[in-house]
Design a protein around this nucleic acid. Structure first.
Lengths: 223, 223, 223, 223
DNA sequence: AATGAATGAGTCTTCATTCAT
DNA sequence: GATGAATGAAGACTCATTCAT
């Protein structure tokens, strides 16, 4: 259930013992948050999970809210970085629709493989109090802007069906992706299968019917 | 933000003053639950929203947990009834894919127009403690079974692309629908638009490419 | 466990339906009080036991405290009346020690056979708040005065051992009697046996050793 | 009114500051319990008496019930230990009746001098809910068994009047002793006086009349 | 004469947070 | 760096009491 820690993904984050403890607390908070929700996240549970006593958390974070805010922020911030990197790696001239499929791949793999942070961030975005949202909101907007640009480019290239409204279509796609965390069972389906199905579903769901169902050239998937 | 009360939807539920108060409390709980999450739902907030004092709740429900359990259960139970009724109304001989589109219509309209219950139920299904899940779980399974049958029939009729795994595709579709509650803004998009986009997206996303994109005959939408 | 109601013992107390309901509430309160103690006595339990709803009690008593006060008062008041009557029935010239034995008989039978009131009164005398004690205190003093007179007369007649202090001896005797409610099991020992043992114990415990252990002439027991 | 703390009586119980605080809470609970009764015992009163805030109690005890259960248990457990020690100190060959008198001495002094625990235990034994009784019940049975053995030995030695039933006589004696806590006023009578009177009363009350009233040789009394 | 419905006060309990060590 | 001990604020729940019917 618990998935990879952030520090393992991000260079220059695991240094001194102190920083490692801090990371352990963040990871624990992300995990508890993704399971219990904002209001249900108790510092004692986080501390248990991190292997220390609750008051120790205060050595690293000024308050419960700050800790949670950082987890939520890291959730989308990492997601955005991950997506940006995936897009940057695409060769010039990649078709808009293939960029979208690459984004589907990046989003899903990050959500399912890498991080309680993503789940925490996704599940609790509607429940945290306003005052914790500022940084997260900006990052979310930036993330959505990335996606929106992809969709706009696809629309401009005639690769988006004309009966779809861009924003609505984007909401539906992101929903399909975000929700996987709720039902995906790694023992029944591999991540690869989920990714492949999602890409197929999204491509067909968005593309104009006239477009011959070209075999995709692996551009959106790393394997 | 607050949407229709259950009792307005369900006949024989709004009778005596007592029953109306009980319904008001349930509606309030559904609303708070959908916004604040399981652990964040305070009886005092529910009471405020229902226009009475917190202890009055105990006149109608034995405990906070019982109240919440009933909301969660009612959430999917109503959803299932709503979907079942929508399917029952379809004319014999309706194509499998059109049944799915009708289900998309029913699901979305219930979620967006009718009920905090659905949102409460959807958002909190992963957060409530085990002991509150029994009834809800059964109902959820039954609901999913309804959908699964639709997808199976579509697959048998060759109306589902062969590169899609039924269960994965279903998860993606339900995710796209469930997530709408998170981003839909009634002031920017009408429910009809969301429904139309979702139906178009789902039809195209599932159907074999060869299938000519027939204009849908309104079978899935009642308006 | 529940023993006789007061009204059955006291003439002119069971009249109209209203008065019977009032008596039922008092009896119920005495019962609950004797089992749960002062603070543990809830009006809802009293109401259950009396076969009505809690608010109905307010038709007969201004408050919980008034109800309890009346039970406590009735407890010793009845006890005193009962003892007084028993003493009044004794023939002139009854020996002081035999009067004490008659009192032992009266006290025990009232406590064990007749009344939750006595038990309630005895068990809770130390726990009720000061302001409820006034009437009860006076009655208790009067009751103790009755006993004290008996002991004084016995002392004057040389029927109390000189190494006993009157008040201490009285405390011990009343303790032996009062405590029977805590251990007596009607299925193992008859009231008659308890009374006989108590009389024997008290007579021997108080009388000067020189006094030949006369067979008692039944003066202290009516059966 | 408040009497000695347990820890003062029991070696190896007053150690670290933490243990002393725990002991203070127990002492306070015993005191409140002996005055207010089971249902009337508020954690806030206990906390006041112990000189801390109510929630601090939860640092030492999992719940109000656990705290009370421990007080009740300690009440008789200490009593039994105290009695056992007193009996163990008696020289071999002590007459059965003198053992009983020694037990009277031990019981009374513990009850009057040492402990709110005894009073709490005695007064509330009938009022606490079943689930708190398990340990206490066992200890009470063991305590009563000690006394019963003493009475049996006395009966076997012909030192108990034949018109007394052992169990009834024991009930009367323990009642006389237990009840002293209800009336004893240290400003009017010394503990020694109460003990002396009780021993005299019990010896005479139990012994066969034929037995010449030997002067007791102080075996049962410390003076 | 009695009840259904509701409330206000109070109690237990949890939990973030502090602080001395 | 971390913990044991403690606190204040808040929340669920109980219960005596009220009031309209």
């Amino acid at each position: 259930m618990a998935r990879g820690s952030r520090s393992a993904q991000i260079p220059d984050e695991a240094d001194s013992k102190s920083q490692r403890t801090r990371a352990r607390i963040l990871d624990a908070a992300a995990h508890v948050l993704s399971v219990k929700g904002y209001a249900g996240t108790r510092l004692s549970d986080v501390a248990d999970y991190a292997g220390l006593q609750a008051p120790a958390i205060y050595y690293y974070f000024p308050s419960r809210e700050d800790l949670i805010e950082e987890v939520m922020f890291a959730g989308i911030a990492d997601m955005r970085r991950h997506l940006q990197e995936a897009l940057d790696e695409l060769p010039d001239g990649t078709e808009p629709i293939d960029k979208i499929l690459a984004a589907v791949d990046a989003h899903l793999r990050h959500e399912l493989e890498l991080s309680d942070y993503a789940t925490a961030s996704i599940r609790n975005s509607g429940q945290i109090p306003e005052r914790l949202r500022t940084r997260q909101q900006k990052e979310t907007n930036a993330y959505n802007a990335l996606w929106l640009r992809l969709f706009s480019e696809a629309a401009d290239a005639g690769q988006l069906r004309s009966d779809l409204e861009i924003r609505v279509a984007l909401g539906l796609v992101l929903g399909a992706l975000n929700w996987t965390a709720e039902w995906w069972n790694p023992r029944r389906t591999s991540v690869d299968t989920v990714v492949a199905n999602a890409q197929s579903f999204v491509r067909a769901g968005l593309s104009p019917a006239s477009a011959p169902a070209r075999r995709r050239r692996g551009s959106g998937s790393r394997r």
